[in-house]
Design a binder for these strands. Structure first.
Length: 893
RNA sequence: GGGCGAUUGGCUCAGUGGUAGAGCGCCUCGUUCACACCGAGGAGGUCACUGGUUCGAACCCAGUAUCGCCCACCA
């Protein structure tokens, strides 16, 4: 091919242009460059840099027991674009990746994969081999699962997650995330456990963590307490039952969806202003079937227009019951146990023979079968007024559970989060102020934070009755009477962390004192997964074990995440940082939107429409998929659209081909292009326009608006290819015989400057294609090259107006249109024609006429101003009297 | 019930006060000496609706409708 660009044919074979391949392709770029970046440590974090030189990112650690989906690829690409931009802008980017392998999903997966379950009462068995390896993913019945110790169970969790994490890393590398893989962490690893325990102990010391025995939301399937943030309200079918309580003056009807709780009834409650019930306040009624005497009370939380206007208050049917129970000092008569079944013993508050007999029939039943039994009994006794009427109600569910939550009383640990009063300190206001301080992108996402904080109705429940998690690092003394003294927890020294209270022994005790009078017991509960996840800036930054690093990266610059976890992850992280460091955990939060199906529904596995990310990357190429992701603004839901990936692929291929073309002129041969060599007005106009693009794209990226930057750059790149390259190619080729003229050198120099700039502008979105081109003619990685600046381009452009390029482009398009309408090839020569130009445009076209004539193959084109064209809205140019070389007769197929 | 966002050509989306834009798709044509994973040209929209402010509204204000999401709602 070298005979097509003679000026480079005579140059030595080591010139950059000779490094351009004959045939370019995107295939294989991902593997090749991923390996090269790893080998050259292109994205390694230089920890000698100070905090003011660092840009640190608190990357969301994906849940490894799940699978990555298209939404992850989407949002992680947004983060990577920011990381690459900041790195090129000169910041030392701290961009670690963690894995969230803590918590229930992993536990469940291990149970099914290995056929085991955790029984914390069992001793550790060294060298344990699980009964199954690589279960088929289907649920194994609890009865068929082998019980093993907590430590064995945790070991299996760790074994399984290592394999998952390997696959996740492979995907991220393929996607081109510029992560420094030497700074990884797992939310269950020893350092993360130590950080989580240390932070908890400090919360405890400052009075921010406390325990309380209280009614709370409880999942009967997982048998664990659940926090407000983990709730999900779902539609749940039920029935209204109109039930008669027995008053002295006749029946009092209430309506309930949960008749099985009648034995737990402690009062009937109506609004104090409700005329219908005035005469009953202060009296008592007797419950149907169980014949328990309960008072009729007034409380403003009762709503006259709901149901019968008078409610049955049970311990506990819902959160309003809890409120009444607390504020009206009602007795506790719980019948629902932690396993979701009714008490097996007949409660002592059922005193009549008939009532006790009725209850015995319900004892041990699930709430569902107890309800059916109660309804039958009510119907039989005549206390059911009419038949139950179906209703759709909302019930609270644990987000991972499938049965409605019950409310049971238990001892739990809490961290203050502003949801409850705290000794005159207004933590809620402090956290709202932090929300104001944080830069949300887009800004309106702050409202979700504020809504959540304002809607909190309790402190953060962090204890969970599970096994695979970070232990609450406490023991309790056992009195000589054998009672566990929860009020005086035994605290480990921070140097001991992490500890497992079920196998480690507190200072001053020996293992044989475990569980015996005068000895100790370990806290059995683990912390909520968010109690660890809320500390990712501290975990990734090395808080407590690498404080030098921590000082260089904290508070971090950016938290990227989804809008769905503002109330959980973002908020809880702000809480921990505020309490521990009296600061925000990061300055900015970049919130990505959802990926939606073409039919505008959120993509979900159940719909069977999930595309595997790796398959997507393999099919379209990583740059193409990144382009699709980067085309969507932060906070905006985006359609899953293969078409957009194809456009991205086309752009990446165009980058390769246009670069190859420009470099083929010898544009890249000069080590340092001399801006002073750019003398032709068209070349200078192109650079002037590019300088504007650099300014505007930079401004957009600084404002976390990557789509705007991409759009600006992409649009200019296509103008560069379609118009500028076409206009200058004859001039850039130069003459085969002579040394390059000044005009030729001008074109080549401008091409070099433009290509250099455009590659750097596109590098954050298309890291593979741009790196490939960069390697043809530059040293080092484009991803470590400085972000382009407008000033050098303006210096080369002088006072040239970008309008020159626009005018020349329009003149060329007008000539093309003539050929298109004449249905001839674009290569057809226009032997004679006049181009009529609006008056204002004439000087611009004249100044670029040589390139226009050349590119349009209209070597004798005459130019004239035509004032009549000035009037039109389009300011259209017109070709008049065109004579074309007759087209060759086309052979019919 | 409260809140947030969206509604622009067939599709996906830009455009935040000054005469409607892009890409895809479509139509017509061309082309293989950067690029068939191609190029050129063209058609196509009363900017959801109703009022208002303004010389002028896709854009600002008020209201309505539809869609999505968050929160509250278990009698």
């Amino acid at each position: 091919m070298s005979d097509q660009h003679p000026t480079t044919a005579s140059t030595p074979t080591t010139t950059p242009s000779s490094r351009v391949p004959d045939k370019v392709s995107l295939d294989g770029l991902e593997d090749r460059w991923d390996a090269a970046w790893a080998e050259q440590r292109t994205y390694a974090f230089d920890r000698s840099r100070g905090r003011d030189e660092v840009y640190s990112i608190d990357t969301p650690p994906p849940t490894v027991s799940g699978s990555l989906h298209v939404g992850h690829v989407f949002s992680y690409t947004h983060t990577d674009v920011v990381a690459r931009f900041r790195r090129m802008r000169g910041a030392e980017v701290f961009y670690p990746m963690g894995w969230d392998d803590n918590g229930l999903p992993t536990e469940r997966r291990v149970q099914n994969y290995y056929g085991v379950r955790c029984d914390p009462s069992l001793p550790y068995e060294p060298g344990f081999t699980p009964p199954h390896e690589g279960g088929d993913g289907k649920s194994i019945k609890a009865a068929d699962q082998l019980p093993i110790s907590r430590r064995n169970f945790v070991e299996l969790c760790e074994r399984l997650t290592v394999e998952d994490e390997r696959q996740f890393e492979a995907l991220w590398r393929r996607l081109g995330l510029s992560v420094d893989w030497s700074h990884g962490y797992q939310t269950i690893d020893a350092r993360a456990r130590a950080v989580a325990q240390r932070a908890f102990l400090r919360n405890l010391e400052r009075g921010e963590a406390y325990q309380a025995e209280a009614p709370g939301l409880w999942d009967v399937t997982f048998q664990t307490a659940v926090a407000q943030a983990e709730l999900e309200a779902r539609d749940y079918p039920g029935h209204f039952h109109r039930v008669a309580f027995h008053g002295t003056d006749g029946p009092v009807h209430i309506e309930t969806t949960r008749p099985e709780l009648i034995p737990a009834c402690v009062a009937l409650i109506a609004h104090p202003d409700d005329e219908r019930y005035q005469h009953l306040f202060g009296t008592t009624v007797r419950s149907p079937l169980f014949d328990v005497e309960v008072p009729v009370l007034a409380h403003t939380a009762a709503e006259p227009d709901k149901g019968a206007g008078i409610a049955m208050c049970c311990t506990f049917g819902d959160l309003t019951d809890v409120q009444w129970w607390r504020e009206l000092q009602l007795p506790t008569r719980s019948v629902v146990q932690r396993d979701g079944r009714l008490l097996r013993e007949t409660p002592e508050w059922l005193t009549t023979e008939a009532g006790r007999t009725r209850y015995a029939e319900l004892a041990g039943k699930t709430t569902f079968s107890a309800r059916a039994a109660v309804v039958d009994a009510l119907r039989e006794s005549g206390d059911l007024d009419g038949e139950p009427t179906p209703t759709q109600r909302k019930a609270n569910f644990f987000e991972k559970g499938d049965k409605p939550l019950e409310i049971v009383t238990s001892r739990q640990w809490y961290i203050r989060n502003g949801g409850r009063d705290w000794d005159g300190r207004d933590l809620r206001a402090e956290l709202l102020a932090r929300g104001q301080e944080l830069g949300f992108h887009p800004d309106f996402m702050r409202v979700r934070y504020e809504n959540w904080v304002n809607g909190l109705n309790g402190d953060w429940l962090i204890s969970r009755q599970r096994f695979f998690g970070v232990s609450i690092p406490l023991w309790y003394p056992v009195t000589v009477d054998g009672e566990v003294d929860h009020d005086h927890p035994i605290v480990p020294d921070e140097a001991m962390l992490p500890v497992d209270p079920s196998s480690d022994v507190p200072a001053g005790y020996t293992e044989d004192q475990r569980g015996v009078p005068g000895g100790f017991v370990g806290e059995a509960d683990v912390m909520d997964t968010w109690a660890t996840s809320s500390l990712t800036p501290q975990i990734a930054g090395g808080w407590g074990w690498d404080d030098d690093l921590f000082a260089r990266v904290f508070p971090m610059d950016l938290r990227p995440q989804g809008q769905d976890i503002i109330r959980t992850w973002l908020f809880s992280t702000v809480v921990r940082s505020h309490l521990e460091h009296d600061s925000l955990p990061w300055r900015h939060a970049a919130i990505s939107g959802w990926i939606l199906d073409p039919d505008r529904k959120k993509m979900s596995k159940s719909k069977g429409n999930v595309v595997t990310p790796m398959g997507l990357l393999e099919e379209h190429g990583s740059d193409a998929v990144r382009y699709w992701a980067a085309s969507a603004r932060l906070g905006t839901d985006a359609a899953f659209e293969v078409g957009q990936m194809k456009i991205g692929r086309r752009l990446a291929i165009k980058v390769l081909n246009a670069s190859k073309f420009a470099l083929g002129f010898g544009a890249g041969d000069a080590t340092t292009p001399d801006p002073a060599a750019v003398t032709v007005v068209l070349d200078r106009a192109m650079l002037a326009g590019l300088a504007d693009v650099v300014d505007r794209a930079t401004e957009a990226l600084e404002a976390y608006d990557h789509t705007r930057a991409l759009e600006l750059t992409e649009t200019y790149f296509w103008t560069f290819c379609d118009d500028y390259l076409e206009l200058v190619k004859d001039r850039a080729y130069g003459s085969a015989d002579a040394a390059p003229s000044a005009d030729t050198v001008s074109a080549r120099t401008a091409l070099a400057l433009a290509l250099d700039t455009l590659l750097r502008l596109l590098a954050p979105v298309l890291p593979f294609a741009t790196e490939e081109v960069w390697s043809w003619w530059k040293e080092g990685s484009v991803h470590r090259a400085p972000w382009p600046e407008a000033a050098p381009l303006r210096a080369a452009a002088g006072d040239a107006d970008p309008a020159h390029l626009a005018a020349a482009g329009r003149a060329l398009a007008t000539l093309r249109k003539v050929k298109s309408e004449a249905k001839v090839s674009m290569r057809t020569e226009i032997t004679s024609a006049t181009l009529a130009v609006p008056t204002a445009l004439l000087p611009l076209v004249e100044a670029t006429a040589a390139d226009v004539r050349s590119a349009g193959r209209a070597y004798d084109l005459r130019l004239e101003a035509d004032p009549s064209l000035d009037e039109g809205e389009e300011q259209a140019l017109q070709v008049r009297g065109a004579e074309l070389v007759p087209a060759e007769p086309k052979p019919r197929r």
